[in-house]
Nucleic acid binder design. Structure first.
Lengths: 173, 173
DNA sequence: TAAGCACTGTTGCATAATGCAAAAGTGTCC
DNA sequence: GGACACTTTTGCATTATGCAACAGTGCTTA
C-alpha cells in the first residue's frame, strides 16, 4: 500500500488508496490538537483536578442536571459522582439543591467561579489554536475550513455553536 | 511591526477575522477527534486503566527508558511512576531491568503483550478515522491533507524565542 | 582515599478517583 | 398499604497522585 502522500498522479486507485494518506494526516493533526487541549488545562490544574474539570465542563455544556444524569454523561459510577460533587461544592464551584418537584433528586449547577474556570480553559485553548492558525499561510486557511467541514460532516459532529451530541460523553471540551 | 505570532486575537490584521472562523472549524474537528480517541480506548480499559495506558504508549513511542525520564514525559511524580511500573510489571506488560552500565537506573521496556494493547488501540483509532475519511467526498480529501499539513507544520514550529517543547508529551496518542 | 554532592529510585503518608454492593429515602402503581 | 423502581449516599477495596524522607550509586575533589 502506498505509504504516504506524494501521489500527484493518483495512478493506483482514484478514491480508496489515498484514504490511508489522509488518515495519517488526520492522526498527526489529532495529536497536535490533543496536546493543545492538554496545555490549556495546565492553567487550572492547580485549582481542580482533571476529573473535576470534566465535571465542570459537563455542567457548563448541558446546564443544571441531577446526579445520575451527570454520572452517566461522565461515564462514571454515581458513587464517584457523589463524592466529586461533595468536593466541588466544598470548593464553591458547584451548587447542590434538592429538587422541590422530586425530593429524591438533587439539582446540580455551576457557580460563577465554577463557570469562570471552564471559560478560562476554553479561552486559552481558542487562543492557542488561533495562534497556530495565524502562523499558517493565509491562503491555506480557507482551504482548511472547507476540508475540515467536510471531515466533521462525515464524522457527524455538530458545529461549534450547536449543542454537543451525546454520543460520547467526554467533557474535555 | 506586525511580526508574527503576537496577535492571535487580531485587531487590525486583514486576515484576522478569518482566523476566528478557522479556529472555530478546528475546535469542532478537535471535539470529533477527541471523541474518536476516547472511543478507541474503550476496547482496552477492561485490561488497563487510562494512566497505565498512557505509560504504555510512552514506552511504545520512545522505546526503553529509565524511570525518571518516563515520569517526566508523563508529567507525573517519580513515586507515582514507580508504583505504576510495579503494577504493570506485575501484569506482565512492562519489563524492568537494572541498567548494568549504571546500577542506579532501571531500564523499562514494553513486553509483547504490552505492545499489543497499544497496537490494538492505535489500529482501532485508525480504522475509525479512515471510516470518516471514506465517508467524505473523494475530491475533498487531497485538500484536507494539504490543509492539515500546513496546520500541523504551523503547530509544530514554535514561535520565535519559545523553547522547543516536546511535541506531544501526553501519551494519548 | 575519603568526603561531599548530585542523581535515581523507593517508601511512608495523605488525598482524590474509581467501581461494586448495600442501604436509606422518595415516588408510583395496584 | 405494600411492592417496586428510582435516586442518592455510605462502606470497602484498589489505583493514581504529590510531597517528603531515605537508601543506594556514581562522580568530583580536596
Amino acid at each position: 500500500m502506498a505509504q504516504h502522500g506524494t501521489d500527484p498522479t493518483g495512478t493506483d486507485e482514484p478514491g480508496a488508496a489515498d484514504v490511508d494518506a489522509v488518515t495519517s494526516a488526520v492522526l498527526t493533526a489529532s495529536r497536535l490538537l490533543v496536546a493543545i487541549s492538554a496545555r490549556s488545562l495546565a492553567a487550572v490544574e492547580e485549582r481542580v483536578t482533571l476529573p473535576q474539570f470534566r465535571m465542570l465542563v459537563m455542567l457548563a455544556t448541558h446546564g443544571e442536571m441531577k446526579l445520575v444524569t451527570l454520572a452517566e454523561r461522565l461515564a462514571v459510577n454515581p458513587s464517584t459522582a457523589t463524592r466529586m460533587v461533595d468536593r466541588l461544592t466544598g470548593a464553591g464551584l458547584i451548587d447542590r439543591d434538592v429538587n422541590p418537584e422530586n425530593r429524591r433528586e438533587v439539582a446540580l449547577r455551576l457557580t460563577e467561579p465554577g463557570r469562570q474556570i471552564v471559560d478560562e480553559v476554553t479561552a486559552h485553548r481558542r487562543t492557542e489554536i488561533a495562534a497556530v492558525v495565524a502562523r499558517m499561510p493565509a491562503d491555506q486557511r480557507s482551504g482548511l475550513v472547507t476540508a475540515l467541514r467536510a471531515f466533521t460532516d462525515a464524522g457527524g459532529e455538530p458545529a461549534v455553536g450547536e449543542p454537543v451530541r451525546d454520543a460520547f460523553p467526554l467533557g474535555w471540551d
